[in-house]
């Protein structure tokens, strides 16, 4: 069914293009908004992605691979957009100063957290993109290394660093709030 739809869309049939949009646009919007961290930017980029996708669609040989192809295109365009931002430059991989094993406490705090987006603001744009693509979208380290034009080892280290940063922020936040109450 979707294959026929993609074939019709390849011929530029507008109702078929609309059906493809209705089927996939929300997924694309969530993906790019997650990477970019802004709904407004996400909407603008979703528009650009679909225009680009419909333009390139006649070149797609395997119509059954449409969903994967669209996801790959979306991730790449979102990363390219972040790359153009001034703070994209990959951070130096610093030594992690890790507190004693406090992951259990961090999980408890995260469960209680209302605004998870607020927490993600401590990350750089590249760290946020990495966290979103690895944790939410399920990309593998090697795929992310290709997408971000870096090594697999660097991706692993940066992801771990980002997660530790989130954990430290959560724990610090609670410590500050407790101290303020006392």
């Amino acid at each position: 069914m979707t294959d026929d739809l993609v074939r019709a869309a390849q011929r530029g049939h507008l109702p078929a293009l609309k059906l493809l949009y209705q089927q996939y646009a929300s997924g694309v919007l969530r993906l790019v908004t997650g990477i970019l961290g802004s709904v407004e930017d996400g909407r603008d980029l979703t528009q650009e992605i679909f225009i680009k996708a419909f333009e390139k669609l006649p070149e797609l040989q395997n119509v059954a691979a449409f969903a994967g192809w669209l996801k790959q295109l979306s991730s790449r365009m979102a990363i390219d957009q972040l790359r153009r931002k001034s703070d994209w430059a990959q951070p130096e991989i610093l030594e992690l100063i890790e507190a004693p094993d406090d992951w259990v406490q961090a999980c408890d705090l995260l469960t209680q957290l209302d605004d998870v987006e607020e927490l993600l603001r401590v990350l750089s744009t590249s760290e946020r993109a990495l966290v979103w693509l690895f944790a939410v979208e399920g990309y593998r380290h090697d795929e992310l290394a290709t997408l971000m034009a870096t090594s697999e080892m660097a991706v692993r280290q940066r992801y771990r660093r980002a997660i530790v940063k989130l954990k430290a922020t959560l724990i610090n936040k609670v410590s500050h709030e407790t101290a303020r109450r006392l």
Binding site: W103, C107, L110, T111, L113, F134, A135, I163, L166
Partner: peptide
């Protein structure tokens, strides 16, 4: 922690 974070996001 990563899994919980992903679910919340």
């Amino acid at each position: 922690f990563s899994k919980l974070l992903a679910d919340k996001l």
